[in-house]
């Protein structure tokens, strides 16, 4: 397909990229291009200048700090996450999820930063990053700011990023001792479009001390289900109590209806995946 004429530039540093982005109104960062290329083909957004950030070494590192927290550069690909010993050491759930994104070709190009900055409600990583209480590290010409993943996703294809800003990395705190994470998707087929998802992180010490339950595909962005979390806090981590808590997912969520499932079906399945994600998180915590 022939695209609209476009300018392309490959800066050598993040500073240079930020200078270009802030001084060109029609500029957009190009990361893995596994969504943006299609956007350009369909001419749904007008981009005059592509700023190719994909090879910037500053955006391509994975580091595990002494406290077990993980920092992943925005332009690290899904395949690199999947194969990273640092990711697997403490956040195996991130590696696992990255390994289930669509297909090998997309995993070889698509980046964690692009996956988040697109804010497509069907994308795999946003709900997990909200459940893991990640922090999005953002840079602009003026400096750096940090936004909780929970506050980063604002709507369909909308994030907290301002024009001229770049997501540079994502920091994920360690999964606490006695804690675990779970992620369950109901999909059309293996590694495919998802009907509904849930991600959870828990810390158990006799009773459930901490819990985050995140639902995706029930709203335009991943949402925490506070009522379910509230019902789980301080109770014994049993299958019955988790089931009862998941029943609280009700008319407060109003998922869309589409060819893959009605709103009612999605809500019903949200209870199932939420229950399974929390149980998986509890089980993982128990194994450690």
């Amino acid at each position: 397909m022939l695209l609209k004429s476009v300018n392309y530039v490959r800066p050598e540093s993040v500073t240079e990229a930020l200078d270009i982005l802030s001084s060109n109104e029609g500029a957009a960062p190009l990361a893995g291009g596994q969504s943006l290329t299609n956007v350009l083909k369909h001419r749904v957004a007008s981009v005059d200048l592509l700023v190719d950030i994909s090879a910037l070494s500053e955006l391509r590192a994975i580091t595990r700090a002494g406290d077990g927290s993980l920092e992943v550069g925005a332009c690290v690909t899904y395949d690199e996450i999947d194969h990273s010993p640092d990711v697997r050491a403490g956040h195996v759930i991130l590696a696992r999820e990255a390994s289930h994104i669509e297909d090998q070709q997309i995993r070889n190009r698509g980046t964690i930063g692009g996956n988040c900055c697109l804010s497509d409600p069907t994308n795999n990583l946003p709900p997990l990053l909200v459940a893991l209480d990640a922090t999005m590290n953002i840079r602009a010409v003026g400096g750096t700011r940090h936004v909780a993943a929970e506050d980063f996703f604002k709507g369909y294809f909308l994030t907290a990023l301002e024009p001229g800003e770049l997501l540079v990395s994502i920091t994920i705190p360690p999964i606490p001792v006695g804690g675990g994470a779970g992620y369950v998707s109901l999909s059309v087929a293996t590694d495919s479009k998802t009907i509904v998802r849930a991600a959870a992180r828990v810390r158990v010490d006799g009773v459930i001390e901490e819990v985050r339950v995140v639902l995706a595909r029930v709203a335009s962005v991943p949402i925490r289900h506070h009522a379910m979390e509230e019902a789980l806090r301080g109770v014994a981590p049993t299958a019955e109590l988790v089931r009862a808590a998941a029943e609280l997912i009700g008319s407060d969520v109003e998922p869309i209806s589409d060819g893959h499932g009605s709103s009612e079906y999605r809500r019903e399945m949200a209870r199932v995946v939420a229950r399974r994600a929390v149980l998986a998180a509890i089980e993982e915590g128990g194994r450690k």
Binding site: M1, Y8, Q34, T37, N38, L50, D103, Q105, I106, R109
Partner: peptide, 29 residues
């Protein structure tokens, strides 16, 4: 498909399998 869905355009670039309809020529420099 020209949308990154069918894989007919798959090539190996710098050792990685990729779909060549999902990249621009200057990216391959």
């Amino acid at each position: 498909c020209d949308t990154g869905s069918c894989g007919a355009c798959s090539i190996i670039l710098n050792g990685k399998l990729v779909k060549s309809c999902m990249m621009l020529a200057p990216q391959a420099d």
